[in-house]
Design a protein around this nucleic acid. Structure first.
Length: 404
RNA sequence: GGACGGUUACCCAAGCGGACAAAGGGGACUGACUGUAAAUCAGUUGGCACAGGCCUUCGUUGGUUCGAAUCCAACACCGUCCA
């Protein structure tokens, strides 16, 4: 790739919400890439991750994929685990105070976090750092100096703080440190580029750049990426909103969850979580728009790519077949859980004992709603005695093979 | 330190002595439909009991009352304002 192609590649999926800012970042990135090429010094690229959770979803991987791209182009990637910033909790994307995390919790999460990240990043080429390494050494006077770069007005023009302030909700003093600490990370790492979501705009574009200039460094370039919507297609993917696609799941589940994303969100998914090139994405979108590609087939393609990116081609292929048998042909899947009842195989007990349904009342409701099928036939009596081997289906996608 | 306000099911939130297993919304689940687990429409959403019914749940503990999510007291936690 030549420099301009690299710039296009690296700017893919970015969202600055402001054309001028986009242009200036594009230009700075280009200059820095040129400089790197002539000096032979790879750029130092980093992104920080909050170890608040260890259960990653594909929304978290948007930035990782971007880091991976830098890696492919030969730059140095630093994966920063915010063990120290986690003591505060990023207030950026919340209109509520976040719970603080103990150092022990943060550490445990951090390890599983990094482990999952290597499904995307090249382990050999990734430097993992914990920001406690440098932040815990800061003295009060350092903090005072750092803080002197910011005004309260800057913080309170940020929407999330302003909203809380106006609603007379608590805004804690320590929350203001978050941006400062993150800015210091960039300085301590001597970063050329910092990657983050649009919710990190202030932390990256204002805090980090200011602090770096303050210490006489060249400010880092912000690669601000769009936010991946959740499976509802509207709001940011997050576990607490229940619209997430976890990384630690089966290929079948991941495939199905992508299929359940509304059509309107397909383009965000294509840009943010696939390995497709800019060209490929353009073609993909055009084909849908012109009606050459059926939205259903487009989504199948998307789901397959995404599943394959996190697993592999073979598993993605299987997941797709599984999906088609189950939902398009409405057949039963090949592999399903097997349960061997201990006593008399009464339907009600089998469903509860096998863990397929939570309670007996729930089973009765499902039976009333025609939601329970035995070998494809809807059941009306929850007390019926099964004659194994038999296949019990609950709803559309829960199956159980009952054997003797 | 003072003055208020809050704590309700998975989440948000109404209820302010009996009609409360507790409105409404979100989520989730089921069915119909379809292009999919999309959209739309309908239903379900504490547990046990084949029904009547029983049991547990409205921050905690105690009290008032025939009867408490609702009233009182203490405690815990959360918040706002004043100092």
């Amino acid at each position: 790739m030549n420099i301009d192609q690299q710039v296009t590649y690296l700017m893919r999926g970015t969202a600055y919400g402001d054309q001028a800012m986009h242009e200036s970042m594009r230009k700075e990135l280009r200059d820095r890439l040129v400089e790197s090429e002539s000096s032979g010094r790879p750029l130092r690229v980093y992104c920080g991750y909050d170890p608040r959770t260890s259960d990653l979803h594909i929304g978290h991987t948007v930035t990782m994929r971007k880091l991976r791209q830098f890696q492919e182009l030969g730059h140095h990637v630093i994966f920063v685990v915010g063990t120290y910033t986690a003591l505060i909790g990023d207030p950026s994307d919340k209109d509520k105070l976040r719970a603080q995390l103990s150092p022990e919790e943060a550490q445990v999460n951090a390890e599983t976090y990094a482990e999952q990240a290597f499904r995307i990043l090249d382990r050999e080429k990734t430097e993992v750092r914990y920001n406690a390494e440098w932040l815990s050494d800061l003295k009060l006077k350092d903090l005072i100096h750092l803080a002197s770069n910011f005004t309260l007005q800057q913080f309170f023009t940020r929407e999330n703080f302003k909203k809380r302030f106006d609603n007379e909700e608590a805004v804690y003093f320590h929350e203001l440190f978050y941006a400062i600490m993150q800015g210091y990370d960039a300085y301590a790492l001597d970063a050329d580029v910092q990657v983050g979501g649009t919710d990190q705009m202030f932390n990256i574009m204002t805090a980090a750049r200011k602090i770096m200039s303050y210490y006489g460094k060249k400010p880092n370039i912000g690669i601000i990426l769009g936010i991946l919507p959740g499976t509802d297609g509207d709001v940011k993917m997050s576990k607490s909103l229940g619209n997430h696609i976890p990384l630690n799941t089966t290929p079948e589940d991941m495939f199905g969850k992508v299929m359940s994303v509304p059509d309107k969100a397909m383009s965000s998914y294509a840009r943010l979580v696939t390995r497709w090139t800019v060209d490929k994405i353009d073609k993909f979108e055009n084909a849908i728009e012109k009606g050459e590609l059926h939205p259903r087939d487009a989504k199948l393609e998307l789901a397959k790519e995404i599943t394959s990116a996190f697993f592999d081609d073979e598993k993605a292929q299987k997941a797709q077949e599984h999906f088609i048998t189950l939902f398009q042909k409405k057949d039963t899947p090949d592999d399903m859980e097997v349960f061997k009842p201990s006593g008399e195989p009464i339907l009600l007990d089998v469903l509860v004992d096998s863990g397929l349904v939570r309670s007996k009342s729930q089973v009765r409701r499902l039976v009333d709603q025609n939601g329970v099928k035995i070998d494809g036939e809807a059941v009306s009596d929850p007390y019926m005695v099964l004659t194994p081997p038999v296949i019990v289906q609950v709803g559309k996608r829960r199956f159980l093979r009952v054997e003797k």
